[in-house]
Amino acid sequence: MKVYGSVLKLRLSMGMQYRAAALAGVATQFFWGFITIMVFEAFYEYAVQTPPISLREIISYIWLQQAFLVFITMWFRDNELFELITSGNIAYELCRPCELYGFWYAKLLAQRLSSAILRCFPILFVSFLLPKPYNMTLPPSLTTFLLFLSALLLGLFLLVAISMFLYISVFITMSPAGSLLVFSILGEFFAGLIIPVPLMPTWLQKIANVLPFRWTADFPFRVYSGHIPQNEAMIGILIQLGYLLVLVLLGRFALNRVIRKVVVQGG
């Protein structure tokens, strides 16, 4: 556990080195959020029937999405790891006295956490101060907020577990391009990053509900605004836990398999 802690610490201080980049990122995301909200605003203005999610809820959905972008996007990746795998230098990693899955998981988690910490607070802070109707609103109750926090964290854990498969697949394909493509296109679409899941047609929503992606982003953001009521949120968190357990076990199994192959082949 201590190893993981120091990995996180190192990452944080490295992240601090790139303050300017982080600030620029924040500005970009802000602009992005604004544009998206305005588009939805325009759509909602002339909506014929009442949409299944209110504009208010959409707005907090979008700000949360911008603030925690690095928690939820697939393209946020570690090129070092890719290189390690494709160049065969993986042998060095195997010499480390800890289990590879846990070590990489911690590394990836730390990367996302450290960039998110730098970015989420300024975005959240400003988004609360914005003039109506663009401002972010508080969650309806403290319980909702606590549920949101746990859902968000579990979502992050889940996402890192999903992204581990990306790295595992590189062992087989030897090029990250293909897997990255599938993961980022399908993953981001079904996580509700392009349009919120409730606005999708019913048949797509059914698909989204079966896949794990939606539980990393769409679910916690809607818990926040109260669009998903508390009792449903509790069930959702259980589903998240289930997914997490299954994916971590599967990932671990798969990683050990591919590594054994590498070792047998002599690297």
Partner: peptide, 20 residues
């Protein structure tokens, strides 16, 4: 990648019909 964005646009029009 832009195709999913376009798909998103299509789906929004399917739900809302028009934009301004």
């Amino acid at each position: 990648i832009p195709l999913t964005i376009f798909a998103g646009l299509y789906l929004l029009f399917e739900r809302f019909g028009q934009i301004k």
